[in-house]
Simulated scan of single mutants.
Amino acid sequence: MISLSSMSISAQDTQTPPRTKSEAAKKAQQKVNGRVLKVVQNKSKYRVKVLQKSGRVISVDVDKKSGKVSRKKGKD
């Protein structure tokens, strides 16, 4: 019973909007495995650059209002 309630808290936490760059970095790492290189914020989102094990650097956007994490498409 305790583990179920902690699981539901974890599930809710994935959609909790990040309040800091550190929280945005954690959300990005949960979505894409790798090492966070840089976090930049603007008015509506955080952009997190992540170095993957393959050596590829990708950008992940974390929405400030919804907490939604999306991988940026296109050239960086």
Rank of each mutant, 00 (worst) to 15 (best):
M1I: 13
M1F: 14
I2W: 04
S3C: 07
S3M: 09
L4M: 10
L4T: 09
S5N: 12
S5K: 14
S5L: 13
S6F: 00
M7F: 15
M7A: 14
S8H: 15
S8M: 15
S8A: 15
S8T: 13
I9V: 06
I9Q: 06
S10F: 15
S10H: 15
Q12T: 09
T14G: 00
Q15N: 09
Q15H: 14
T16A: 12
T16G: 06
T16R: 12
P18N: 05
P18A: 09
R19P: 03
K21G: 01
S22C: 04
A24F: 00
A24V: 02
A25P: 03
K26H: 04
A28F: 05
A28D: 02
A28G: 05
Q29G: 03
Q30P: 00
Q30G: 01
Q30M: 04
K31W: 11
V32S: 05
V36L: 11
V36S: 10
V36E: 09
V36M: 09
L37T: 04
K38M: 06
K38P: 03
Q41A: 13
N42A: 11
K43S: 10
R47N: 11
V48A: 08
V50Q: 05
V50S: 05
V50P: 09
V50W: 08
L51W: 01
L51F: 03
Q52R: 06
K53L: 12
K53V: 11
K53D: 15
S54W: 05
G55C: 01
V60T: 03
V62Y: 02
V62R: 02
D63P: 01
D63A: 10
D63M: 07
K64H: 10
K64R: 14
S66L: 11
G67V: 10
G67F: 11
V69T: 13
S70L: 11
K72P: 04
K73D: 15
G74Q: 08
G74L: 09
K75H: 12
D76N: 08
D76C: 03
D76K: 13
D76V: 00
D76F: 07
